[in-house]
Design a binder for these strands. Structure first.
Lengths: 151, 151
DNA sequence: CTAAATTAGATACATGTGCATGTATCTAAT
DNA sequence: ATTAGATACATGCACATGTATCTAATTTAG
């Protein structure tokens, strides 16, 4: 190594891993305890609910952490569970239009009771208001391409 | 939901996931491209190298992100690869004393060339110096129990 | 227009993961 | 000595993941 990372850098790397692991683990554990699917399903459902006209799979992929193969498999499970429907896309016969079902909307709402509560207890309650912007800006710096949340 | 998370909270949650995924993915991809094992192996090797007298498995577990079962399996692979030795612990016959081998030290050093470089390029270069403390403090707030790095 | 390149999405394969449980050992109270 | 409970580590199982590859459809270049 020509140049060594400084101690702040090392700490950031360690904390990024620990914080992510700790927080996501609590989310997954609580969701599971409530008999609900994993957090990633929430994001899929929410993405689809905000696009009632339907979404292409690759469009959904861009807004999610899934890579293509995993999203494909996850959607298959969600279709099997009746949460999502896949219709052939009229303008591109390779594609499929995804739509959320009533059962999907219902599940998303039930997940929100837990998911939203966890955002409060695991994040909002823990990070004091004065520390939030610093955290946001630091995390944003790590992901130069990230443009922000859709409204 | 009685009370909704505010928009900063939501952004923190999203960014924590995106930043973690993005950064770790680069680490893993680069390590793999260099023909090296995953980042978690580095942490195990480094932990053992700092404790030349040997470590119990549960001691190592506390300093790592592995849960017990996964650490057990990972160590098995590392023993098979000749990077680590497991000797029966004399004072507790349930336990095993872990020691790093010469091959393990050698691998850690070769991993460091990539791993340390990634810490520079993916973290130190991206997070401007003035933003680092804010990031550290925000992440720390998410993990109340975390006490800091061993020297 | 055709051939090559690109893209959408699915799937096979190997590997990793969490969870639950199993076995052995240890500690301490009876 | 016996027994109850805790702890160390291993393992079986179900499922999730990344990588690579496949098929089909579409776009682009010549």
């Amino acid at each position: 190594m020509d140049k060594k990372p400084n101690s702040e850098t090392t700490l950031i790397w360690v904390l990024l891993n620990i914080a992510h692991k700790t927080v996501t683990q609590r989310f997954e554990t609580e969701l599971r305890r409530a008999g609900l699917p994993p957090a990633a399903w929430y994001d899929v459902l929410w993405g689809l609910e905000r696009n009632p006209q339907g979404m292409r799979q690759n469009q959904l992929e861009r807004g999610s952490l899934f890579d293509q193969a995993n999203l494909s498999r996850t959607l298959k499970r969600m279709v099997d569970d009746g949460l999502v429907t896949q219709c052939p896309a009229p303008e591109d016969r390779r594609g499929r239009i995804l739509t959320i079902t009533d059962a999907g909307r219902d599940l998303r709402l039930r997940m929100w009771e837990v998911y939203g509560g966890l955002m409060l207890s695991e994040i909002e309650d823990k990070v004091p208001a004065h520390a939030r912007q610093g955290l946001i800006q630091g995390l944003q710096a790590l992901v130069p391409g990230f443009k922000g949340l859709e409204p």
